[in-house]
Write a protein that binds this DNA or RNA. Structure first.
Lengths: 214, 214
DNA sequence: CGTGGTGTTGATTACTTTCAAGATGTGTGG
DNA sequence: CCACACATCTTGAAAGTAATCAACACCACG
C-alpha cells in the first residue's frame, strides 16, 4: 500500500538512524513512502488509521475557499498523527519532503482510548499554545517561538534543521513568506542565528531567542 | 467547597432551565459558584479534576510576560473543561460572570480515557480550526466566524447571547477591543446584525455572515 | 550550463493598533 | 426612584506593522 513510490529517496540528514519505536500494538504494517508534496489524506476523507512518521516531515493544514492556508502542525520523525474527533478527516496531511509513514489500523472493536488520549491531550496543549503565538505575538516573536520549538523538538541542539520551506513556515505562523524571510535576515544581522544553509540554522544566542518568543 | 460565594446571583437568561446531564459517573459533587472574574484554576496549579459548566460561562486563557492575553476557549453551559496533558494546568480558567461549575474527581486508579478522549479530540479540532481564524483571517472575518460559532453553539438561533465583554472577544480573536467594536459597527451598518443590547445580538443576514467567516 | 523553483530585498499600500476623547450602560447609595 | 460614579463601549486621528507588488539573487535540477 504505497501511496506514491519515488524512484530514489535520498534520506535527509535529520532522519533517525533507526526507526522510532512503534506507537501501537498490532500487526506489523509496512511503511508507506511519500514524495515531497504527496498527499497522505485529504479533508473530508474517511478517517480511522493512525500514522507514525518514520523519517521526513508532514504538514497538517486547512484551506479557506480562496486558497489561504493555515498549517496547524508539523510532524517530525517519531510523531503520530491522523486521529480525529469523528469518522472524517478535518484537515489535509501532506509529506513535506521524502517521507516514510507507518500506518496503524486498529482491528474493529479495539478501544484505543488509553493510547490515544495522551497524544490528543499533547496535541491540544500544543495547539492552544500556538493560538497565543498567532493571536498575540508579532512577526519576530512568532519566528523566534518557532525556532525555539523546532530546536526543542530536535533535542535542544544549537543546530536546527528546518525541513519545510519559508512558505510552509509562513503558513504555520500566519505570516507571508516575505515577512518570514525579512525576520530571518534581522535575526542574522542581530547575530541571534546563523544560516548554515537555507534549511539549516545555528542558534547563536539562545537566550535572546527565548526572550523573544517569551 | 464554594470558591467564592456571591450574596445574590442573578441567573443570566441563557442559563438552561435544567442542569445539563452530568458528564461523568461518580459521587455527586456539589456545584461550586463563582462570581464574575473569579479564578477557577491558575496556570501552574496541580490539575486533576474535571469541570462541567452548570450555568454561566468560563474563559480559558494564557498570558505573555507583558500581560498580553490570549483566550483559547470559552465554555458555555453543559461543556466540560479542565483536562490536561500532564498533572499541571497549562492555562488559567476564570468565570466570565456568575457561573456554576460541577467538579468531578475520578477516584485514583480510575481510567477515564474512554470518557475523556472524545472531549479532547473535540477540543483539538476546535483549537485547530481557531488557528485558521487567527492565522489567516482579517478582523471582519474573525468576528463573523465568532458570531457564527456562538450562534451554532446556542442552537443556531437568530438571537445570540454574548456572555463575554468586547475585551474578551478581542482576546479570543487576537484583536483589540477597538477593532472588535468597529467591526460590530460595520456589521450593523451593513444590516448583517442588529444589537438588541450590548451582550445580545440578532443575526439578520446569516448567509452573509457565513460567507464572511468562510 | 540553462531553467524553474525558492528565497531575498525594496517600495508602496493597507489594515490594525495605539492614543485619545467622548458616549453609553450599570450599579450603588442617597 | 433618581443621581452620581465607574466600567464598558464607541468613535476619531495618527502611527506602526505586515501585506502586497515587483525585481532580483540563489540554488538545485536536468
Amino acid at each position: 500500500m504505497y501511496a506514491q513510490a519515488s524512484a530514489k529517496i535520498e534520506l535527509p540528514s535529520y532522519a533517525p538512524h533507526q526507526s522510532p519505536a512503534p506507537a501501537f500494538e498490532g500487526p506489523a504494517t509496512p511503511v508507506s513512502f511519500f514524495t515531497a508534496g504527496a498527499e497522505i489524506y485529504a479533508q473530508g476523507e474517511k478517517a480511522g488509521a493512525l500514522y507514525q512518521v518514520e523519517f521526513g516531515a508532514v504538514r497538517i493544514y486547512r484551506l479557506l475557499a480562496d486558497g489561504r492556508r493555515q498549517i496547524s502542525a508539523f510532524h517530525l520523525a517519531g510523531e503520530t498523527f491522523g486521529f480525529e474527533a469523528d469518522a472524517t478527516h478535518h484537515f489535509f496531511a501532506e509529506a513535506i519532503n521524502a517521507t516514510g509513514v507507518r500506518v496503524f489500523r486498529a482491528p474493529s472493536g479495539t478501544d484505543m482510548s488509553r493510547q490515544l488520549l495522551p497524544l490528543a491531550l499533547k496535541g491540544l496543549t500544543r495547539a492552544q499554545e500556538h493560538l497565543l503565538v498567532l493571536g498575540r505575538q508579532n512577526a519576530i516573536e512568532r519566528v523566534a517561538a518557532f525556532l525555539v520549538e523546532m530546536s526543542e523538538r530536535q533535542g535542544g541542539l544549537r543546530q536546527v534543521e528546518l525541513p519545510m520551506s519559508r512558505n510552509d513556515i509562513g503558513d504555520y505562523l500566519g505570516l507571508t513568506i516575505e515577512t518570514v524571510s525579512r525576520v530571518f535576515t534581522r535575526l542574522k544581522e542581530k547575530g541571534v542565528i546563523r544560516l548554515l544553509s537555507l534549511r539549516s540554522i545555528e542558534i547563536l544566542k539562545r537566550d535572546t531567542l527565548l526572550a523573544m518568543g517569551e
